[in-house]
């Protein structure tokens, strides 16, 4: 099971923000896209998610060309920088949303069970009926993670998932996110501009600059 990004080009208003990006992801692998703002990493993530479309190039998942597949059919879980939790839904409703809107999806009882299981996994079992506004930043981040994992995605996408958190929470959440991803057995692409974050989480780090992947490294060993 692999995911391949092949020679993606993208321009906005005459400015080329992606100049032929290729990358491949092994099963269960965690890749960090590291680079300064404006390097094109978020655009690349949006194209992978199906929220933006490449001018040329293709995306291939398990041999299937998904370049033109709508976002909803890709079955990729996405964690947004702002978390984008549904503000008028409870934590449980947020996590269960993807299952609820699924065509021929699970029954209500099954959804409840899955939601309870995920709440257990993110260690917030008592907060099912809270609203996002009543949660701390770290809790929101974990709910966003659980919501993305609820649909048992084929790939997990994360856009600066820790940037809205204070430094202490940020570090403690890293290992948690890594553990959740491992447990779900799902490949992940994370956009970040923080080298330490990439080192702590990723199997490989793709360093981007000015619309290109400059090098691909393995993380430096952290003592």
């Amino acid at each position: 099971m692999t995911f391949e990004i092949r020679d993606i080009h993208k321009s906005f208003a005459g400015t080329e923000v992606l100049k032929g990006v290729s990358l491949s992801l092994e099963k269960g692998e965690f890749i960090a896209l590291l680079g300064p703002s404006g390097s094109g990493k978020t655009t690349l993530l949006n194209i992978v998610a199906g929220l933006a479309h490449a001018d040329s190039g293709s995306l291939v998942f398990d041999g299937e060309d998904i370049t033109r597949q709508p976002a909803g059919q890709r079955h990729f879980g996405m964690v947004f920088q702002s978390y984008a939790l549904f503000r008028h839904m409870t934590v449980a409703q947020n996590i269960g949303f993807g299952l609820k809107v699924m065509k021929g999806g699970p029954s209500r009882a099954e959804i409840d069970r899955r939601v309870a299981e995920l709440l257990e996994m993110i260690e917030l079992p008592g907060l099912a009926d809270r609203f996002p506004a009543q949660l701390s930043g770290g809790q929101r981040q974990r709910v966003a993670m659980a919501r993305a994992l609820a649909i048992r995605p084929r790939l997990l996408l994360m856009d600066e998932p820790f940037s809205a958190l204070d430094a202490q929470v940020r570090v403690s959440l890293r290992s948690e996110v890594r553990a959740l991803q491992r447990r779900a057995g799902v490949g992940a692409i994370m956009v970040t501009h923080d080298r330490a974050e990439a080192d702590a989480l990723a199997d490989r780090i793709a360093i981007m600059d000015q619309g290109r992947i400059v090098t691909i490294e393995t993380p430096e060993q952290v003592a």
Partner: peptide, 26 residues
Amino acid sequence: GEDEEKAALTLGANGWQIFRHVVLPN
């Protein structure tokens, strides 16, 4: 903003479901 709508989209909701469950309550 449109982040919630995008999130619903990646979770597989169709246009009507996004309007009904995400936009309308807001």
